[in-house]
Write a protein that binds this DNA or RNA. Structure first.
Lengths: 213, 213, 213, 213
DNA sequence: AATGAATGAGAATTCATTCAT
DNA sequence: CATGAATGAATTCTCATTCAT
């Protein structure tokens, strides 16, 4: 997807990961626009010339970073879903995992939300596609719960979007909540909303929680 | 707050509004960093030199825009709260108004969420203060409902934050929901969550809705 | 010489003195180029618009300042010459007066030396003429001493130039001498050189000094 | 001392000399402030971008030029002192050499005198140090002569300052002397003053002169 | 494949000067 | 006569990108 001057595919992906890691470190502090290519090269421990052997334009780096962050989030989500069979347990568990993952990934998630519009059309499409697939994971989970009769909600797609959105509250609004409230209190509130979203009966929810708490 | 070279205060606020309006128009498409001062001047129909008579640095414009958008959102919120006495009705009505207002203000709200971190310390404090006061409006409303016994929730401040956050879903995630679902369906879902947030009994909610639907 | 938009000649010279005084104050710290017209206007307590009623271009101010400083130096010189009849006493006295005057006028004299080349041709000529007349005062004094047989030097014009130059040592090199040596020691050295310049016999010099010390 | 983006130290000093030479050419006519960076780049035959690879700020160029000029003056001075053993001969010879060197270096020396105050604190200190060391060379020479009994003056440091100052008369006041008098006449006068400064007996001076004239 | 020097377009900002009131 | 708002050309400096080695 990103055009390079190098042939060896292994080298390409190794160096691109290197660039990603370096770039993310500087993006956190200064954002995409305010960071110069020189700084990215230095942070990646790659020379300016070599950097341009592995990308074409500065924007390519933004895309690589985006891809990497979404990849990490997917990993968290898939990992936690596959640990349970029961949709209610899956949902609660996944929500909890994502919530706690979004603490260290706070900057990255915020980055996704804030710098997506800087991507050019070519990449924007693919990134939004991926983000939408992320929501798709939740939608599948919800549909599964509906089929099994443990969820009840009229519109699984809207519900999935809202669940995914709710779980991003820490990166986006954490600054106004977490200084004065515990993570646990916030998570409790969020889980309540998430379960309400998919229409779990309180009893079912209680059971599922007991099972693993 | 923003240092100018002009003495006439009326002229200052007139021109700063003019600059705000122009800047917002170009920021929508390109964001703050990617927009040059020249473009802002052109969009504001002010000469480059005059522009700098009304601000000190480019960042001042970001602050002015922030202030303006928050001002508009406050106006919507206060207006709609004032129309009712019953907290349930107030909440439902305010949520609905904000939801529909955030359609045309979509870009502005997204801007607030995405470009806040570009503000320098001096302004950041004031802007976050204002945003936090916005949440404060909801908190006051919720506490009123609690006092009157129509709401029931353990943590009004978290609830207020989540309510405010939920109502920003259109600017932040609308692109993934609205192409395939109606505004009404989304609003319905949101209202459900909002009411759940503050612990309104379904009957009370039903009554309040009937009263004005 | 400086073109104005105002008719009343008294007002012109009053305002131009005002501008001079203000300008000199800011020039001392920042020099001519680094000082903006706005700063000059503020320092002169004249509005930007009015300022341009009394001058045509920024450079005019430089010329006015030059003229003023030279005027002050002339005053010191003429004043001290006319107090004595004996050329030796005149020379010693004038040198001493100029030396001590150049302490408070240090910045102004340095300014003359450093910013003369910023004057445009039209003014440069007049300014150099005046500076040269300043030297002329000394030349006349020396020629008078030669005629009276108390001085003896082959080239009065060179001598006059050197005398005038020597007396500017404080503004130009004071920073390297005065921190470690007294004014009196420096003056003593200078007077020795000045008298040598014009070929005063030590005895004559001694007599003249005794007369007024 | 001057921060660069380039690693190769040889290239750095080569290019900085190139910049110096170019800058001095344009500074001569217009001075430091009135010369734009673009003009300097053009005169140095370096692209604007590259120029900024070898300096950080415009002021760095001023410092480089200062350093270069002082370096050249040192070379002249040291060279000529080294040629003789006798302090009287050294002094006369050095003065003569500096006098004639300051003809082609006229603009440069004037530049030193007039633009030193434009240097920022960081550089100012170093430059004044160097200028003061220049005077120090003369001071050492004078102290040597005192030790050997051929000079007689109460304050060698003041004398050294005055000697150095006298030898700068061409750049600073040459415009008023040289159009009407020969270099030789002026030099003769100056040498008389210089020797008087350090208290050489006329006979000793005569001898030393005869030796090499 | 890697390096780092070179480039010039474009960014923010300043400022002398003009002009309407 | 006085005021201060308006203008845009010019300034310093940055940065993505290319290219020779």
């Amino acid at each position: 997807m990103v055009k390079t001057k190098i042939k060896d595919p292994e080298l390409i992906s190794k160096r691109q990961r290197q660039i990603c890691a370096g770039a993310m470190n500087v993006f956190k502090n200064k954002g995409f626009h305010a960071t110069s290519i020189r700084e990215i090269a230095k942070a990646s421990r790659i020379s300016l010339g070599s950097l341009y052997d592995y990308i074409e334009k500065k924007e390519d780096i933004l895309f690589l970073v985006h891809k990497q962050i979404l990849h990490d989030l997917y990993a968290v989500l898939d990992e936690s879903i596959k640990k349970y069979d029961d949709p209610v347990a899956q949902l609660i568990h996944a929500a909890r995992e994502l919530f706690y993952s979004s603490m260290p990934l706070k900057d990255e998630v915020l980055f996704i939300y804030t710098e997506t519009k800087s991507l050019e059309r070519k990449y924007l499409h693919e990134v939004l596609q991926r983000e939408s697939e992320f929501v798709g994971r939740f939608e599948a989970l919800i549909r599964d719960g509906l089929a099994k009769g443990v969820f009840s909600c009229p519109n699984p797609e809207i519900a999935a979007n809202l669940v995914a959105y709710l779980l991003a509250v820490v990166p986006l609004r954490g600054w106004n909540i977490l200084p004065r409230h515990s993570q646990e209190d916030l998570l409790e509130h969020l889980l309540g909303l998430v379960l309400h979203c998919v229409g779990v009966s309180p009893e079912a929810a209680g059971e599922a929680r007991e099972g693993w708490q």
